[in-house]
Simulated assay, not measured.
Amino acid sequence: MRAQKITSRRSVQTYLMAVGLMILGLALLALCVAAWFQGVEPLWSPILFGLLGVYMVALGVDEGWLSGLEVTPNHLRIQSFGRWQEYPLARVEAVDRLRDILGGGLQLVLIGPEGLAIRVPLRRYANAVQLTQALLDVLWLKNRNLILMPRLARQFGSPPYGVLAATDK
């Protein structure tokens, strides 16, 4: 019996990258506070870079503990900063693969009509391959004419993979 829902699992790399972002953000914030008290001119520059440090800490917290992904036969759910967003998959016509800006993890782009594009960050999840195959299985079930871009097709082949769809093999 096949699973009805595939949920992301964080890996050691996910936590290392999250902690690294938080440490860098705190270091940048500490440098900016020190520069502020030393009277660096213009005064807005340590404020601006200090805000960047705060953003890096928040991004690290999101990356490590508040983000997630869930694939079911009916929808895709992406969690960011603790909030879930649900995306319907019926209108997706093509899928491409990119490298995520944070650490080079895998990222899928679901392409639909009229400029619809959904970015699916797989980051450094321990089960990124299984999540990708499950998502491609569901998309293939919704649209048998699904177009896989060449980079993605070379890496994974063509669906079904047997994660959320039956294989013909």
Score class of each variant (00 low, 15 high):
residue 6 I to H: 05
residue 167 T to F: 06
residue 169 K to Q: 13
residue 46 P to I: 09
residue 95 V to M: 01
residue 107 Q to L: 15
residue 150 P to M: 00
residue 74 N to L: 15
residue 72 T to W: 05
residue 132 T to M: 08
residue 54 V to K: 01
residue 101 I to N: 10
residue 160 P to V: 12
residue 69 L to S: 08
residue 26 L to G: 10
residue 121 P to M: 02
residue 1 M to T: 07
residue 29 L to M: 12
residue 116 L to K: 01
residue 85 Q to R: 12
residue 153 A to D: 08
residue 149 M to P: 03
residue 88 P to W: 03
residue 58 A to G: 14
residue 92 V to K: 02
residue 143 N to D: 13
residue 72 T to K: 09
residue 3 A to S: 08
residue 137 D to S: 04
residue 32 C to H: 03
residue 94 A to W: 04
residue 90 A to Y: 03
residue 52 L to E: 13
residue 122 L to E: 04
residue 67 S to K: 05
residue 16 L to N: 09
residue 77 R to V: 15
residue 88 P to R: 04
residue 79 Q to F: 09
residue 16 L to E: 07
residue 137 D to M: 10
residue 66 L to M: 11
residue 119 R to E: 15
residue 82 G to W: 04
residue 14 T to P: 08
residue 85 Q to F: 06
residue 23 I to Q: 05
residue 92 V to I: 07
residue 104 G to F: 06
residue 62 D to Y: 09
residue 89 L to V: 11
residue 85 Q to T: 13
residue 168 D to P: 10
residue 97 R to W: 01
residue 23 I to M: 15
residue 14 T to L: 09
residue 126 A to E: 07
residue 71 V to D: 11
residue 96 D to Y: 02
residue 49 F to S: 04
residue 133 Q to I: 08
residue 78 I to H: 03
residue 149 M to S: 00
residue 96 D to A: 01
residue 67 S to W: 01
residue 106 L to W: 07
residue 152 L to K: 02
residue 27 A to C: 11
residue 85 Q to W: 04
residue 169 K to H: 12
residue 50 G to C: 09
residue 165 A to V: 09
residue 65 W to P: 08
residue 163 V to P: 06
residue 130 Q to Y: 06
residue 84 W to S: 14
residue 47 I to A: 13
residue 85 Q to H: 07
residue 53 G to N: 08
residue 146 L to H: 00
residue 159 P to D: 08
residue 9 R to E: 13
residue 169 K to G: 09
residue 151 R to P: 15
residue 68 G to R: 00
residue 148 L to K: 01
residue 37 F to A: 08
residue 129 V to R: 01
residue 154 R to K: 10
residue 51 L to P: 06
residue 31 L to A: 12
residue 36 W to Y: 11
residue 85 Q to M: 13
residue 147 I to E: 05
residue 122 L to T: 06
residue 118 I to F: 02
residue 25 G to P: 07
residue 65 W to L: 14
residue 158 S to W: 02
residue 20 G to M: 06
residue 167 T to L: 13
residue 44 W to N: 11
residue 163 V to L: 11
residue 165 A to D: 10
residue 42 P to V: 03
residue 88 P to A: 12
residue 115 G to S: 00
residue 112 G to E: 00
residue 92 V to H: 00
residue 150 P to W: 02
residue 90 A to L: 11
residue 73 P to R: 00
residue 52 L to F: 06
residue 124 R to V: 12
residue 58 A to I: 14
